[in-house]
Design a protein around this nucleic acid. Structure first.
Length: 414
RNA sequence: GGAGGGGUGGCAGAGCGGUUGAAUGCGCUGGUCUUGAAAACCAGUGAGUCGGUAACCCCGGCUCCGAGGGUUCGAAUCCCUCCCCCUCCGCCA
């Protein structure tokens, strides 16, 4: 959500920033400004009528208290009320249109967000080719069974891979705890305001599952719930930064992805994920974004996954992001880099929608929020399997995970 | 699922149709007193929005007592719908 007052005062920088997205949002911003002007045209008279009513109401009260008759004054106010009602009807219509238009605008990109996807650095050996994760996993990833009970793009994970998943999650939560992130298990089902607040509605409704008999949605990421953790609150000064590590299943319809990435775990409707989420002061947001990126890299390196860091093009940013980095892992089974984690600086976009503020010495202001993937379990397991494979098809699992219950080596049953 | 009780400022808690953005207490900020602290006393202390100004301070208007509608000249107060919390019963774990 953009701040109308800021835009009204100086629209040019916002128009220029939105224009970089190339999605016509700068044009829609002009519409917002026009609606804002119409709203402010209607306001003065409406409020003057209310003031008149309030003042006369006081006089009526005083007269009645004194035992007098206020019938004449009341009759006079009835005309004022009718005029006010008519104006307020117009005002409400304009205000509703304005709110909808404003809510549909994406976050203006940060100046350092890239025009085109830009590889910032490459870490690890990305020359290796090898077998695909489904081959390596054998019946530990059973897509046929998943399809049987739930349809295409659902996996059944079994055996050592289950232990590997739980170890990954447990290890990640421990690592994040060391960085100040509090572990959170949020609801997977959320209401509409949580999706609106995090910017997924009205932006990505075609990706979201909804229930038939209850006004609930299956969240595509715990970010949705974590962002809502402090909705409507004014945080005490000194409370920031607040950092959370959410662990939850994630559900995505993958509408429009028909035919793409159909093999294995790469693009499924349900997967588990450990997600980082930070509430910070506005001036701390850029540093926090680098911090989240650094943690994502720390995780990749600890897991010995070759990767590269990409500054994502403004045209590919989601509505809420002002800037996004993706970490793309080298997948020997595909012979190319694929997105494994992602971190976004959403500035005050979500904080405004969810009304998360902080008290400072000079007043109250909206906070900034950021999110980043710590471990997307399915894709991470793909990267571990494919990068850890040996000649014999067995896979060496990184030592760090063994302390949390992962097997030292996994191998498909013959 | 059934019955009942409630949601008021940072917290507790009055108000239950009229000049109430809201008593009182606590908390917080500043001051007086004190060598310092505590105590006591005094003063201040919500958010949003529009305008006066381009912005801050400040001043004025309007809005906000869970959310949204309604009745009324006037609603924290009455009515309706929804959300949330609590108690009891039932059901399940």
């Amino acid at each position: 959500m953009l701040d109308v007052r800021t835009i009204r005062r100086d629209p040019e920088p916002v128009l220029a920033a939105l224009a970089r997205r190339g999605d016509g949002s700068d044009g829609r911003l002009r519409g917002v400004l026009e609606l804002d002007r119409r709203r402010r045209d209607l306001l003065p008279e409406t409020e003057a009528l209310r003031a008149q009513q309030n003042e006369a109401g006081g006089a009526i009260a005083a007269a009645k208290q004194a035992g007098g008759d206020a019938a004449e004054a009341i009759a006079g106010l009835q005309a004022v009320k009718r005029r006010r009602d008519a104006l307020e009807l117009q005002l409400a219509a304009v205000a509703a249109e304005l709110a909808a238009a404003l809510a549909s605008l994406p976050n203006p990109p940060d100046p350092t967000a890239a025009d085109e996807d830009t590889v910032l650095r490459t870490v690890g050996d990305a020359t290796k080719a090898g077998r695909d994760h489904l081959d390596l996993a054998g019946d530990m990833i059973d897509m046929e069974a998943g399809a049987q009970m739930s349809g295409a793009r659902f996996a059944v994970i079994k055996g050592d891979l289950v232990l590997l998943e739980l170890a990954l999650v447990r290890w990640a939560l421990e690592l994040l705890g060391g960085h100040g992130f509090e572990p959170v298990i949020p609801p997977a089902l959320v209401r509409e305001p949580a999706l609106f607040g995090s910017g997924y509605l009205p932006d990505t409704e075609q990706q979201i599952y909804r229930l038939a008999d209850d006004p609930l949605f299956l969240a595509g990421t715990s970010e949705v719930a974590l962002a809502s953790l402090h909705a409507g609150q004014i945080l005490d000064s000194g409370a920031l930064p607040l950092r959370y590590a959410g662990f939850s299943p994630c559900f995505r319809r993958e509408a429009g992805a028909a035919g793409r990435d159909t093999r294995g775990l790469f693009r499924v409707h349900q997967f588990d994920k450990v997600e980082m989420f930070s509430f910070v002061a506005p001036e701390a947001a850029l540093d926090e974004h680098e911090r989240l990126l650094a943690i994502e890299e720390e995780i990749m390196q600890a897991l010995r996954i070759p990767y590269r860091v990409v500054n994502i093009a403004v045209s590919d940013l989601g509505a809420s992001a002002a800037k996004k980095y993706d970490l793309e892992a080298w997948l020997p089974g595909q012979g190319r880099y694929r997105e494994l984690t992602s971190t976004s600086n959403t500035t005050d976009f979500q904080a405004r929608r969810l009304d998360v503020r902080e008290r400072t010495a000079s007043g109250v202001r909206h906070v900034n929020t950021l999110n980043g993937t710590a471990v997307a379990v399915g894709r991470t397991m793909i990267a571990l399997l494919e990068n850890g494979q040996g000649e014999d098809g067995s896979v060496v699992i990184p030592e760090v995970l063994q302390a949390w219950g992962a097997p030292a080596r996994v191998q498909a049953r013959p």
